[in-house]
Design a protein around this nucleic acid. Structure first.
Lengths: 151, 151
DNA sequence: TATTGTTATACTCTATAACTATA
DNA sequence: TATAGTTATAGAGTATAACAATA
């Protein structure tokens, strides 16, 4: 019935290896750790980098929009955006009396270029392991599953 | 050059959609939220459920082993395992003077059966969206990428 | 000396509710 | 009345260092 194992040197039997959700989570966490390590020299965390990328692609956007796109709550955007403004990477101006318009500063644009280089390099490692064709297939499968969840 | 967008009803341009790491993370978080919701009636969090599954497949295992397999630090295993023991789901006995042996109680085994039913049902939703063949392909691609990271 | 469980602690990320000022 | 930003706060999850008991 149940396998008796007490002192074997090998690893445990893992009943989660066949679970899609578990594998996605473990791989995602491993890649996130790599991204975090790659970004450290820029003194940016993944969330900050993603905000810079989004603001760069959408000048004039509001913090709430950015948070919604990234899955970050409005309330949690406040200190992160404030820090990016304080560091001179993001310019914040009033769009109307209650909303802000965000844009990259020149320093922010150079940060975005550096971020893209880091992500490109790490993406290249995955592409080398899978091949470009399988990489595209993987992205398509992930997109299909995301659409299912969105319903 | 940069697209001027101020009041359009549509969503923002997302420069992260093509990034594998980002898509993995978003999908993983969405699936994790579903798993968490599915487990709530059992009064189990995902980490607790994964520990029960691992203990069930490896009777006599040590907390440190389980933590290592799941990516949970020994120090953080302590209160989680203690809670499972207190709830009567896990039996903890001394293996030698310094290590514990974990096993499921009958209540723990019935919890594991319930967990498996929930995970099977949620996995079936993904399988229905992709088809069994693509599902296998996806798991294989994810395993390949995990092996790359492990090096 | 290395390992196992443990304690204490801190930091990040996330979630919620309530407030303000504007539309 | 609804929206945008904000504040305060609480809860997870995670990381590190140090300790006692044991191998």
């Amino acid at each position: 019935m149940a396998p008796r194992r007490k002192k074997e040197p090998g690893a445990l039997v893992d009943p989660l290896t066949g679970r899609l959700g578990y594998q996605l989570r473990r791989l995602s966490m491993a890649m996130m750790a790599e991204v975090g390590a790659g970004l450290r020299p820029l003194r940016l965390r993944p969330a900050e980098a993603s905000i810079l990328l989004l603001v760069g692609a959408n000048p004039g956007c509001r913090p709430g929009e950015v948070g919604e796109a990234l899955g970050i709550k409005r309330a949690n955007m406040v200190p992160v955006v404030a820090a990016l403004v304080k560091r001179g990477l993001v310019a914040r101006s009033r769009a109307d009396g209650r909303s802000h318009a965000l844009a990259l500063s020149p320093a922010g644009r150079s940060k975005v270029a550096a971020i893209d280089r880091i992500l490109d390099r790490q993406e290249a490692a995955s592409q080398a392991a899978l091949g470009g064709r399988e990489m595209k297939r993987l992205l398509r499968l992930l997109a299909t599953l995301r659409d299912v969840g969105a319903q």
